[in-house]
Structure formats: structure tokens, C-alpha cells
Write a protein that binds this DNA or RNA. Structure first.
Lengths: 131, 131
DNA sequence: GTTCGTGCAAACGGTTTGCAACAAT
DNA sequence: ATTGTTGCAAACCGTTTGCACGAAC
């Protein structure tokens, strides 16, 4: 418990009971919870916890680098007319998604992943468009 | 125009005026439009087109394989307590997201991408969890 | 007493759904 | 007549915001 408080301090986050409770769950889980899942679970221990606080807390954590939002599932649906496999580059300034040709990047090792039967994959790159 | 109709038929989609108009735009663009962007643009040529029809049409297209929803940006935000770089595997049956160790998959060529300054990347894999 | 965090409820934006009108077979 | 498609509006769900209360320094 103290390690949690210390970690919050370490990241410049004032440790409040609610934040500690959220961190205690979210930093120890192996799943990738949604905000509402976090709320449902942490509320059991901290019944006064409101949804807004969970959202605020998670956003704060992400901002401070305690958490990440993986580049999957994060906004609205976009549609891709190119059905053939290719990779994606996301411009971090504008959010624009660019197609990267399949041959431009090569991936190895995906066939031998233990426990996973990979049907398709792609590389998602993030950075800046070079002018 | 006829090639569009033919393509719709080919994918088992009944070609209606609205669907043709949507397909005509969405299959020819290089961008990754959101449903609302599609609506805004196609409505200029087909002013009666409703939002609902655009959503229905795009979902139908995706279902039939005419379009893809890239594994980026597609639902609610999920939070990842593992800040260190790693890859993600998405179980297509359950939607569960698993972490894949960074070393399990190797990527080459991402440094020499012309026009892109890559800051981070990850491989997103999809398939079935092997029991 | 000012600052910061919380809780509530309302607002918001993207997406879906229910339903009545309509077209095509 | 049945089936499938459209348009509208309302519902929906996840998320954000405004605001008043409360705690801490």
C-alpha cells in the first residue's frame, strides 16, 4: 500500500484515497480495463467513488505516465478501403492515419508465439510526419 | 460507376443509390474517414442521405469485407498499466487484449521509413487464443 | 481562505435502434 | 404480400464538464 503512495508521489500525483484505490487495482491487474470496468471494481472497496473521479484519475495517470492508452481502441471508428494487409502510421500532431506498405516493415517471430494463433497482424507506428 | 455496382454485387451487397454513392467515395479515397466524414462528403452529392444510412452502409461494407476497421481507434479507451513497450494480441472471439513481450516479435525497417519520424511502434496481432 | 479533489448531474458526441414510409421483387 | 432499404428521431453508451461541497495546507 505504501509502495502505491510512493509511486504516486514519484509521478507527481497527490495521493488521495480514491487515487490510491484506483492505482491499487489498475497497476496490479494484467487485464486492459476500460474506465467503467475500473469503476465497477474499485467501487466495491470504495463505494463513494464516482465515475467522474475514475475518469479524471485515469486521465491524470495517463498524462503523468503512470499508465498508457495503447494505440488500439481509442477513439471513433475509422474505415479503411484497403483490404490488403498494410501497416499504419499515426501522426501524433494531427491524428492523421497513413498507410504504410506491407513491405516497408518486416516482422519476425509472430508465427511462433506460444499460445496464440495469429490470423493477422499489423504494425502501428506513431511519430511525426517528416516534411 | 458500373465497376462500383459490379463490386457491390460481387460482395453480395445490393446496390442502392445510397450505397453506390458511399462506395464511390470510400473506395476511392486514400484517407481513413470516420463515418461522419463520409456522411458530410457524400451528402453533397446525395443530399437526402441520412446519417443512419451511412452507418448502416459502412457496417454492412465492413461485414462483407469491402472495408476494414483497422485495429486502431475502434471502441472505448483501455488503459494499460505496463508502460514499457510491448505488443498486443487481441482475441477475436472475446475481444480480450493480451500483452505480448517485446522480444517475442521483432520488427525491422521501421527506422528507414521515408517521410516518417517514428517515435514508437508496436505490433497488433489478432487471432485466437490457443488452448 | 485559497487551492485542490470529489461527487453529482447534466451535457456531449459518436453510434445504434425503433419505426413508419417506401421500393423492388 | 413479402422482403429489404431508407430517413427521421429518439435512445444509448462512454466520456467530459460545470458546479457546489469538502478537505488540506
Amino acid at each position: 500500500m505504501n509502495d502505491i503512495i510512493e509511486k504516486l508521489n514519484q509521478y507527481g500525483i497527490q495521493p488521495t484515497p480514491q487515487r490510491i484505490a484506483v492505482a491499487d487495482f489498475v497497476l496490479k491487474t494484467d487485464t486492459h480495463p476500460t474506465a467503467d470496468e475500473v469503476w465497477a471494481i474499485v467501487r466495491q472497496r470504495c463505494p463513494t467513488l464516482s465515475r467522474a473521479t475514475v475518469y479524471n484519475t485515469l486521465n491524470l495517470f495517463a498524462e503523468k505516465g503512470l499508465l498508457k492508452l495503447p494505440p488500439i481502441k481509442e477513439g471513433v471508428a475509422v474505415f479503411d478501403p484497403h483490404v490488403a494487409p498494410h501497416h499504419h502510421f499515426i501522426d501524433e500532431e494531427t491524428g492523421t492515419v497513413y498507410d504504410v506498405p506491407w513491405e516497408a516493415v518486416s516482422v519476425a517471430g509472430e508465427k511462433t508465439l506460444d499460445g496464440y494463433e495469429v490470423r493477422e497482424y499489423q504494425v502501428v507506428l506513431r511519430g511525426r510526419r517528416r516534411k
